[in-house]
């Protein structure tokens, strides 16, 4: 039974419901009274920069962190005060979880199964490993996995109890683009098999491509919540236009162009425009260039995306570290020193 006031239209289709959820730490309010619902069967994204409160929000839903105010209902059960029953129904993948050394993959999965009181057969375990593409690694130790493989193991563990909903906290952070795309396929397959997926990310592209609906978070607030398409559409911006000119022109001239909403000048005769109508903006830009006998170079027209949504709402960029992740190997923390007597950590 849901407590009164939480049920909303179409509650049967709602798997998670947050109402006024708040978490305060000594000097800041990490999550500030947020409310939203996740529908059964969807891939729901929480998009925001580091420190937006995404992880704290997940932790309160997962029963790891007690909210200071507000309530969370998961699968018709209030998470708090005793989250044990909800924990049994959800799958969780946490940021940067390392696992037991000296246990093989199939042993780790069996062990986590018993944490949920689930007894899995070898065939079952292999099927689960196969779902995340790790079947041929079943006998390896977790330490021998690459970053992407480790994340996939982590996702397998989030499925070990056949959860109603599974939570993935920045599942692709630190992965190279290829591993990231491979992981998206895994997540889509999980969702298609019937599990609701809630994921956090600070990658705009990930939210756009993977999620049916996205909550944009910043400073502990939900700034917007809709499908990626509707969010972008709501911007009133159609496209980004960037180019350089053979000679400088006053920025104000560019702003007055037909179809342009905002404009900016950069160094070396570089300019950028946000167009509410891309076609008219490009035509008028080329007209201006012809009229003043200027050459337009490096012309680039890009459809607006969630990055622009975020930029418009907060005046800040979403992910500063996106560039350094691109093409890079997995970002790995340096391994800790062994213990003095070499016994630690086992």
């Amino acid at each position: 039974m849901s407590p009164a006031g939480v049920a909303s239209p179409g509650a049967a289709g709602v798997v998670i419901s947050l109402r006024g959820l708040t978490k305060r730490y000594a000097d800041l309010t990490a999550v500030d009274g947020i409310s939203f619902e996740v529908r059964r069967g969807e891939i729901f994204g929480i998009l925001g920069p580091n420190g937006a409160g995404k992880t704290t929000t997940l932790e309160m839903i997962e029963g790891l962190s007690r909210p200071d105010d507000g309530e969370v209902i998961v699968d018709d059960l209030p998470v708090w005060p005793d989250p044990t029953r909800v924990k049994a129904r959800i799958g969780v993948q946490l940021q940067a979880t390392a696992l037991f050394d000296f246990l093989r993959l199939h042993e780790i999965i069996r062990l986590f199964g018993s944490c949920y009181g689930v007894r899995r057969s070898t065939a079952d375990i292999d099927a689960l490993l196969d779902r995340v593409g790790l079947l041929e690694k079943r006998g390896s130790f977790a330490a021998q996995l690459s970053g992407g493989q480790a994340q996939r193991l982590s996702i397998a563990l989030a499925l070990v109890n056949d959860p109603v909903v599974t939570f993935l906290d920045e599942p692709t952070t630190g992965l190279d683009p290829r591993a990231r795309r491979a992981l998206w396929d895994v997540i889509r397959a999980i969702n298609e098999a019937g599990t609701t997926v809630v994921l956090t990310t600070h990658y705009m592209e990930e939210a756009e491509r993977l999620c049916e609906r996205v909550a944009v978070m910043d400073h502990g607030h939900v700034m917007a919540l809709d499908t990626p398409r509707a969010l972008v559409h709501g911007l009133g911006a159609d496209a980004h236009i960037t180019f350089t000119l053979s000679a400088p022109v006053p920025v104000s001239d560019l702003c007055e162009l037909d179809g342009v909403s905002t404009c900016a000048a950069h160094e070396a005769e570089g300019y950028s425009l946000v167009a509410d109508d891309a076609q008219r903006a490009v035509v008028s830009l080329l007209g201006l260039a012809a009229q003043r006998e200027l050459e337009v170079k490096n012309l680039d027209v890009q459809g607006a995306n969630l990055e622009d949504v975020f930029l418009q709402m907060t005046g800040r960029k979403l992910a500063e570290e996106e560039e350094e992740d691109e093409g890079g190997e997995k970002v790995e923390k340096p391994r800790r020193r062994a213990f003095l007597f070499g016994r630690g950590g086992r």
Binding site: E62, L64, T97, N161
Partner: peptide, 14 residues
Amino acid sequence: KEKGVLRRLRATPL
């Protein structure tokens, strides 16, 4: 604790 294993185990009903 440092590796997050405890946190992960705490997310289970165990």
